[in-house]
């Protein structure tokens, strides 16, 4: 049979397919925010400026992409921010106080982070409690552990001195170094962020697991009924955010060579905001990894752009709140429009 089928497809196909993309709102926001700052600040649009605002976008973006996957799967992780601190603290503490090689200390941090993610996933899938509550519990517990253990070991609320640890040079070059492109040095974290976004996009759009993630977030019972391993999918998603938290925690620890015990607190909402700006629905089943990455760029632009313009940095949160509201409204309009175009 030939595919010369339905004349109605051609008429609405392309337009709707573009509009129905979850990242559309974020792309529009990206263009607007870039134009806003670029017009007023030459530094903002210079290569050095771009390298400057891509840096916070990268570390936030790694987290936002992982959180977006989890949100598409229908769950939240409020412990993700604090877990970046936990991973960093384990790395620095083991390397500086217990003589671990930096790589080995990172491995230990990874094991702990994945265990936390696994525990989050197990509790959520077994008890069927809302993940908002479960991970809020994890968040508070980790916050206590971060402060308590750090004080117990160092007598202060930070650990430092990573630079002297064995293996620091290599690990730092891989995770916290810079690369020169056309005379401007960019943080290597930007590469990791692009890699994570590409991988997450592939998983979502081109793997069976991606189909399962959309399904468990869209309608868990229905997914289960056709044989989707819903619990395994969700646990894997919690472990993915934990992995991202470990990666970001390690990047930051290697960059600053010291970690504050209260680091990461409050960041969990920023990750969710970036994912929502990127088109994720709070109710699950819809969203995109690229969108979340773009959400992180918008965040990075605003964060640095406000400084470039010489404004008080306090205005940043106001901007962020307005952006979140606008993006959510835009996403809803786009989705409604796309769904109404059916006949």
């Amino acid at each position: 049979m030939t595919v010369a089928a339905d004349e109605r497809v051609a008429r609405i196909g392309t337009a709707r397919r573009l509009l129905i993309r979850p990242e559309l709102g974020a792309v529009v926001g990206l263009v607007v925010v870039f134009a806003f700052f670029a017009v007023q600040s030459p530094v903002f649009r210079s290569p050095a400026g771009i390298a400057n605002w891509l840096d916070p976008a990268a570390t936030l973006g790694i987290m936002a992409v992982a959180v977006a996957l989890l949100m598409i799967g229908g769950e939240f992780d409020l412990s993700a921010g604090v877990l970046t601190g936990t991973s960093g603290l384990i790395l620095v503490t083991l390397a500086t106080r217990f003589g671990f090689n930096v790589w080995l200390a990172m491995l230990a941090g990874l094991v702990v982070a994945l265990a936390v993610g696994f525990a989050n996933g197990m509790v959520v899938t077994r008890t069927r409690l809302p993940s908002f509550i479960v991970t809020l519990g994890t968040f508070l517990m980790l916050q206590g552990i971060n402060l308590g253990v750090t004080k117990m070991i160092t007598g202060s609320v930070q650990v430092s001195g990573l630079r002297r640890a064995e293996g620091y040079e290599g690990a730092s070059a891989v995770l916290a170094g810079t690369i020169e492109i056309g005379g401007t040095s960019f943080r290597v974290a930007i590469l990791w962020w692009i890699l994570v976004t590409a991988l997450a996009t592939w998983v979502l759009m081109r793997s069976r697991a991606g189909n399962w993630i959309f399904a468990v977030g869209g309608n868990e019972q229905a997914a289960r009924a056709v044989g989707v391993p819903a619990a395994r999918t969700k646990i894997a998603l919690f472990m993915t955010t934990a992995f991202a938290a470990w990666l970001v925690g390690s990047i930051l620890a290697l960059r600053y060579t010291s970690v504050q015990a209260n680091i990461g607190i409050g960041q969990e909402f920023i990750y969710i905001i970036a994912a929502v700006i990127g088109g994720c629905l709070l109710t699950g089943g819809y969203g995109s990894a690229i969108g979340a990455a773009i959400g992180a760029v918008i965040f990075g632009m605003a964060d640095k752009g406000i400084v470039f313009l010489g404004w008080d940095a306090d205005w940043f949160t106001f901007f962020l709140g307005a952006m979140l509201l606008l993006a959510t409204l835009a996403n809803r309009l786009v989705r409604r429009y796309a769904e109404e175009m059916r006949h």
């Binding site: 592939w202 081109r206 793997s207 069976r208 991606g210 189909n211 399962w212 959309f214 399904a215 869209g218 309608n219 229905a222 997914a223 056709v226 044989g227 989707v228 629905l281 089943g285 819809y286």
Partner: peptide, 22 residues
């Protein structure tokens, strides 16, 4: 799943594989 496309729903739980990918 209402938010998923027809073809994604059609194969949900029994996705055809090509190597590692769907």
């Amino acid at each position: 799943i209402p938010l998923m496309s027809v073809w994604r729903n059609f194969f949900l739980g029994s996705e055809p594989r090509m190597g590692l990918s769907f």
